[in-house]
Computed example of a mutant assay.
Amino acid sequence: MARLKLLIAEDDVVIAQNLSLSLEEMGYEVCQTVSTGEELLLSVHQHTPDLVILDITLEGKLDGIDTAAMLAKSTRVPFIFMTAFSDKETIDRAKQTNPHAYLVKPFDARTLQSSIELAIHNAGTRQRQPEAHMITPSQAVATEIDETDNFLLHDTLFVKVRNRLEKVALEDIIWIEAQDIYCNIKTRTGLYLVSQSLKNLEQRLPPSQFMRVHRSYIVHLTAIEAIEDNNILIGGKQIPIGNTHKDALLKRLQIL
Rank of each mutant, 00 (worst) to 15 (best):
D50G: 14
F81H: 02
S35V: 08
T36A: 10
A84T: 08
V34D: 04
K105A: 08
L40C: 11
I80Q: 05
Q129P: 00
D66W: 03
V52C: 10
Y102T: 09
T83F: 06
M82I: 05
N98D: 00
E39H: 15
V34T: 12
L41S: 01
L118K: 12
Q46W: 09
D92C: 08
A72Q: 04
A68G: 13
A72D: 14
G64I: 02
Q113P: 02
S86H: 11
E89G: 08
H47N: 12
D50I: 06
V44N: 07
G60D: 02
F81R: 02
A69G: 13
F107W: 06
T67L: 01
H121P: 04
D55A: 02
E29R: 10
R128N: 15
T90E: 01
P130S: 10
T90Y: 02
L112H: 02
A132E: 12
L40K: 00
H100N: 09
E39V: 01
D55K: 02
G64V: 01
R126W: 12
I135R: 15
R93W: 10
T111Y: 01
R126Y: 14
Q46K: 15
Y102R: 07
L112A: 04
R76P: 00
L112Q: 08
K61C: 00
L41E: 04
T36C: 12
F79D: 00
L41I: 09
L58S: 04
F81N: 08
T33E: 14
Y102N: 01
V34Q: 05
I80Y: 01
H133G: 01
G64L: 07
H133N: 09
I116G: 09
F107C: 11
G60W: 02
S138Q: 14
V44F: 01
A119W: 06
K73P: 01
G60L: 04
L62Y: 08
L51K: 08
S86R: 08
A132C: 05
A109S: 13
D50C: 05
R128V: 03
L118M: 13
K61Q: 14
T136V: 07
Q96H: 07
T57V: 10
G60F: 02
F107I: 05
P106I: 02
G124V: 04
L42N: 10
T48N: 13
T90S: 05
E89N: 12
V44E: 00
I120T: 10
T57F: 03
H47M: 09
I135F: 11
K105P: 07
R76A: 12
Y102W: 11
T136S: 15
T33G: 11
L71K: 06
Q96S: 14
V44H: 07
F79Q: 00
Q32K: 14
S74N: 11
Q96E: 15
R126K: 13
E29A: 13
K95V: 11
K73N: 15
A94K: 03
R93D: 05
G60T: 04
H121Q: 12
L41V: 06
K61M: 09
P130N: 05
D66R: 10
K73G: 14
S114Y: 00
R93T: 00
F107H: 10
T136H: 10
P78H: 10
P137S: 06
P106M: 03
L41G: 01
A72Y: 09
L103C: 05
L58K: 03
D87G: 07
T83N: 02
D108N: 15
S115I: 06
L58G: 00
G37C: 11
L42R: 09
Q129S: 13
A109V: 14
L54H: 08
P78W: 08
A94C: 08
A69C: 11
G64W: 07
